[in-house]
Design a protein around this nucleic acid. Structure first.
Lengths: 170, 170
DNA sequence: TGAATTGTTTTGAGGAAATCAAAACAACTG
DNA sequence: CAGTTGTTTTGATTTCCTCAAAACAATTCA
């Protein structure tokens, strides 16, 4: 169960000489470059908001020896190194994304769970500055929009709020 | 341990004749009034943002026969009847609150996980109209502020962001 | 009131998501 | 190329939550 397959030139591997951009960004974060890490990062490019399980499914196709726990490990290392960001939408397993460093937000389809990035409408005081923070020293604001994605709208779907979700906005 | 207030009559029970306000609100939601439901509702008054586990701990002191699954059942019934709202902060089990019907938000202490309500700065585009919703038909916005509660500030604590949390705001 | 009906709670099992620990292993260092 | 450090595997475990069937209690109707 060594790095089987990978028929072409060295896809899952990295040498100091020929690292590739993915390998570079891993190295820059102070982490060692390994095949599972490269595979996870590559999978995240295809699925920019993916769960560990989903990434595992992708990774195992090109790196069959990889375990789910390895993917969890990779993601934990990435996330604490600032290479990925983790979001935990209600009713969903945690999702990981490569877009970090800017505080953007997310729209999630309440029917099919599709996720899209939403730029933070910063400038005024949109997502930050609660009206009254009850004495809290706020340092971050996390906004999740719930709605119907274009596809589900086209399918004539009802919002289908999970129970207990925030009420429709006035 | 027991409900300090309301020391008087008929603590865990309700009769059609003398229901009490809690019983009324349950009935108004189309649910039957039972002792576990009253106990959960009462516990929620003391702990306005509590997990099922925590509510179970409170409830069992006054109603020892109650099971954890019963509490889950009660909360599910409440939530789908609109009597409680369920929130799922990152890194925490689901919390339940009685304040429903208005779209308010929450500040959560990133150190001790204390939760406070934050009024929605509604009026205009409050928690707002995402700048670009990518074609989604948005019907709800959920905002979570992360910060240090007054107590943890006083203790001179560092924010201690869970890994992968949204970055500090510009 | 008392039996029927409906809904709720208990009991027990089970599953998804994630975490932990130790041993096997691979990547960078000199 | 051997040593050191860090990563991955393997396997078990935890947490949070859900499901199903039987026991049970609250309202309804005779």
């Amino acid at each position: 169960m060594t790095t089987t397959g990978t028929p072409s030139k060295n896809p899952g591997f990295s040498r100091p000489g020929e690292p590739g951009q993915l390998g570079d960004s891993i190295r820059r974060s102070g982490l060692k470059v390994t095949a599972p890490r490269l595979a996870v990062l590559r999978a995240l490019d295809d699925s920019p908001h993916a769960s560990a399980e989903r990434l595992f499914a992708v990774v195992r196709t090109e790196l069959p020896g990889t375990s789910l726990q390895a993917v969890y490990g990779v993601l934990a290392a990435f996330t604490s190194a600032g290479l990925t960001r983790r979001i935990e939408p209600s009713g969903s397993p945690a999702l990981y994304e490569r877009r970090v460093g800017d505080n953007h937000h997310h729209v999630i389809c309440s029917r099919c769970a599709a996720v899209q990035d939403v730029d933070c409408a910063v400038g005024e005081a949109p997502c930050l500055e609660p009206s009254d923070a009850a004495g809290f020293a706020v340092h971050a604001a996390e906004v999740t929009y719930w709605g119907l994605c274009p596809d589900c709208q086209a399918a004539g779907a009802e919002p289908h709020l999970p129970a207990g979700h925030p009420p429709t906005h006035p």
